[in-house]
């Protein structure tokens, strides 16, 4: 089924036979992954399955040992976060990487400030930040000049996402976006993910939470002990089968579904 997908639509990001090890520990082994444009791909897996390592390889934080990475059909080498950003890959980490003491605008432009006559162009940055936030319909914040310290968890997540999509990005990687959030805040973030997809962005969400996965994901990929156990359309899974892939790497006898076909 993975191959069928490739035939119908060129994936935005195509990874083949990716290996990554840390000293003697093989973290990822021959991993294949397709991320189609304009869809939400969920990356699942138990603790230590290699989800975060794979994400960091895509984001340019880690260097891959072997394997091919293609972006929009062209082979690429992502050496650092700047390379990833140049391609249009932005990452929202679990800790969000926001500076509490800076306000929303300052955080969104951190590291890419606009200047006028050598000084910060606050007016222009504030206008762009407001546009991005309203396009994502992030409207619950009282003022975009309030420090991030005064925001709720969901609002922080929204700011981190807005920061990621402001740069003509095509793929947004999100590491456990709902892990620390309550029910209402989780809903807010899931809506946000859907809006990103509606804007034509590809989203890869790492998540343990199968409720969230089934709610937003178009595709599901499951890592098991550093190998890609399965990747397929979300409609071809149910909760039971995802859990089995996560815990055993394959479908057991009890499920009655065919084993993975790749």
């Amino acid at each position: 089924m993975t191959t069928a997908q490739v035939a119908t639509e060129e994936p935005l990001l195509k990874i083949r036979e990716l290996d990554k090890h840390f000293g003697p520990v093989q973290a990822l082994y021959h991993v294949d992954l397709d991320i189609p444009p304009g869809q939400v791909t969920a990356l699942c897996g138990d603790n230590g399955a290699g989800k975060t390592v794979l994400t960091k390889c895509i984001a340019g934080i880690y260097q891959i040992d072997h394997g091919q990475v293609s972006w929009e059909g062209h082979p690429v080498h992502i050496h650092n976060a700047r390379d990833a950003a140049r391609l249009g890959i932005e990452t929202v980490y679990q800790d969000l990487a926001l500076a509490d003491n800076l306000d929303i605008v300052q955080n969104m432009f951190l590291g890419r400030e606009r200047l006028r006559n050598g000084l910060l162009d606050e007016d222009s940055m504030e206008r762009s930040a407001a546009e991005t936030l309203s396009s994502l319909r992030v409207t619950t914040v009282r003022s975009i000049r309030q420090p991030v310290a005064s925001l709720s968890g969901g609002q922080r997540q929204s700011v981190a996402v807005a920061k990621a999509v402001m740069w003509n990005s095509k793929l947004v990687l999100m590491d456990e976006p709902t892990a620390a959030l309550g029910v209402v805040q989780t809903r807010m973030v899931l809506d946000l993910i859907r809006r990103l997809r509606d804007k034509g962005l590809a989203v890869m969400v790492i998540s343990h939470n199968l409720n969230d996965v089934f709610e937003v994901a178009d595709n599901i990929a499951v890592l098991y002990l550093g190998r890609m156990a399965v990747q397929d359309k979300a409609s071809n899974f149910d909760r039971q089968s995802v859990v089995e892939y996560m815990t055993t790497g394959g479908l057991g006898r009890s499920s009655g579904r065919p084993a993975k076909d790749s």
Partner: peptide, 15 residues
């Protein structure tokens, strides 16, 4: 200020 507030965020921002 960014480094004082969150050095990791500053590092990831390419500072």
């Amino acid at each position: 200020y960014a480094i004082g507030g969150n050095p990791e965020a500053a590092r990831r921002a390419g500072i």
